[in-house]
Simulated scan of single mutants.
Amino acid sequence: MRSASIHRRLLAASFFLCALLGLTCLPVAAKGRPAAPTAVSTSGLTPHFRNWLAANGYGGFDFARTDLAGGSYGGRQSDADTVVNQPVIFIHGNSDKAIGTGVPGQSGWNASIQYFLSQGYKPSELYATTWGPANALFSSQQYHSRENLTRLRAFIQAVRDYTGAAKVDIIAHSMGVTLARKAIKGGPASDALAGGSYNLGPSLTSMVDTFVGIAGGNQGLAACYLSGPTTPTCGNTNGFYPGYLLGGFGPYGVSAFLTELNSSSGYEGAYRYSIWSSADEVIGYGCLVYGRNTCRIPGQTGERGFSAAPYGHFGCKDLTGYWQWRMVKFHATS
Rank of each mutant, 00 (worst) to 15 (best):
P104A: 03
K185F: 02
G59C: 07
Y271S: 15
C316V: 15
V254C: 01
L204D: 07
S174T: 12
T301L: 06
W109K: 04
A192F: 12
E147A: 13
G105T: 08
A180N: 02
Y267K: 10
V28S: 12
A194Y: 09
S203H: 09
D318N: 14
S203L: 06
Y121S: 02
G57H: 11
E260G: 14
Q114R: 08
G22M: 01
G248H: 02
N238I: 09
L20I: 11
L258H: 06
D81Y: 02
C234M: 06
V83A: 03
A136T: 08
A172I: 04
R296W: 03
L20V: 04
T178L: 11
H173V: 12
F63W: 06
F15K: 06
E147L: 11
G22D: 02
F49G: 03
S145H: 12
G195N: 09
R76I: 05
D67L: 04
E260Y: 09
A223S: 10
Y143S: 15
A64K: 04
F63C: 05
G93D: 05
T259N: 14
K167Y: 00
W276M: 14
G247K: 05
G201I: 06
G74T: 12
A223Q: 12
Y121H: 02
S140N: 04
A12E: 09
A36I: 15
G253T: 03
S190Q: 14
L246K: 12
G93H: 08
C18K: 05
G176E: 10
P232W: 04
R33S: 05
V103M: 03
N148Q: 12
D96N: 15
G108W: 00
F211W: 11
G312V: 04
A39F: 04
S190V: 14
R153V: 10
I283Y: 01
A166T: 13
Y290S: 10
A4C: 03
N236P: 07
T301P: 03
K317E: 13
H173R: 04
P37T: 03
L152R: 06
N218T: 15
L53K: 03
G32L: 05
Y322I: 13
Q119F: 01
S227R: 14
Y322T: 13
Q114E: 11
L17Y: 05
A13D: 08
C18I: 13
Y285V: 12
H92M: 07
H144D: 06
K329R: 12
T129K: 02
H92V: 13
Q157E: 14
A19D: 04
Q300T: 09
V212R: 02
S264P: 00
Y121V: 05
K182Q: 15
Y241W: 07
M175E: 13
L26T: 14
I275R: 10
A166S: 13
L245F: 05
G186I: 03
V28Q: 09
H313T: 09
A69K: 07
K182S: 07
A128Q: 01
L26G: 03
V28A: 10
P298R: 11
